[in-house]
């Protein structure tokens, strides 16, 4: 299978703190990859490398290559804005803009210069449908996004990312602020989205990783300890540390 991301010897420092140490990882197209590991092990840091959000952090220094469709994006010469059009991101806490639902969805496309009203209307409908939110909001597209429930807001954020027609969607603990019902909806959605997108998701829930992901990467203190098919990671991990973590014998 083709890989969409090929990460080679990735090292990251926050000042003098070596937060990611020699990470090597390949990610297949149209798969769901779960990143697991204890708090502070570098999952979010790793995820932010993939759409260059670490650029915003002062004193953050990155070495190594991140090939995205065979092109190294971890380079001054690669425009991070172009990368973010192809690699969308959904955050831990839903962060819709204080605008209408419609405006939220077309924020990305508008930034890309799409102004045709008909095209935007289509994008809004198809994105909201893909994010399983269309039925909930089709009658109130022009009311404020802040009036939605937390789970709906998160699905709107997913729709907003989908509207850019990306190849990859990064999700950093997207359900940790949601109740079990909203969580189940998002999990179902992720599995559906797999047909068209590659999804990389950080999660603290072993069950969630097991339910939705094809591959799982286990991080510990800035290192990638083990990366394999999710079934293998959960049924018979090769590394003792992985086993300790997933069986709960670890922090």
């Amino acid at each position: 299978m083709d890989n969409i991301f090929d990460i080679k010897n990735l090292n990251l420092w926050y000042g003098s703190k070596h937060a990611l140490q020699g990470i090597n990882l390949r990610i297949n197209k149209q798969s769901v990859v779960a990143l697991i590991g204890p708090s502070g092990c570098g999952k979010s840091t790793f995820l932010r490398c993939l759409n260059r959000m670490n650029d915003l952090i002062v004193n953050c220094h990155i070495e190594g290559s991140i090939l995205f469709n065979k092109v190294n994006v971890n380079s001054e010469r690669y425009d991070e804005i172009n990368l973010r059009k192809k690699v969308g991101m959904v955050f831990q806490r839903p962060n819709p803009f204080p605008m209408s639902i419609y405006e939220n969805v077309i924020y990305g496309p508008k930034c890309q210069g799409i102004t045709n009203k008909k095209r935007l209307d289509e994008l809004v409908e198809s994105s909201l449908k893909k994010a399983a939110l269309w039925e909930d909001v089709k009658d109130r597209l022009n009311s404020s996004a802040l009036g939605l429930s937390g789970g709906q807001q998160q699905r709107l954020c997913i729709a907003r990312a989908i509207a850019m027609e990306p190849d990859v969607i990064l999700m950093d603990e997207p359900t940790s602020a949601l109740d079990p019902i909203a969580t189940a909806k998002i999990e179902k959605l992720i599995i559906e989205l797999k047909a068209n997108y590659t999804i990389i998701i950080v999660t603290h829930s072993m069950q969630q990783a097991a339910r939705i992901s094809d591959y799982t990467a286990f991080f510990l203190m800035g290192e990638l300890i083990e990366y394999d098919k999710t079934d293998i990671i959960f049924a018979n991990p090769k590394n003792k540390k992985t086993e300790d973590y997933i069986t709960g014998r670890f922090g």
Partner: peptide, 14 residues
């Protein structure tokens, strides 16, 4: 809220 700024940049906004 810094999340708003991040949200915008993550959508490919300049």
């Amino acid at each position: 809220d810094i999340a708003q700024i991040q949200g915008s940049l993550a959508l490919g906004a300049s």
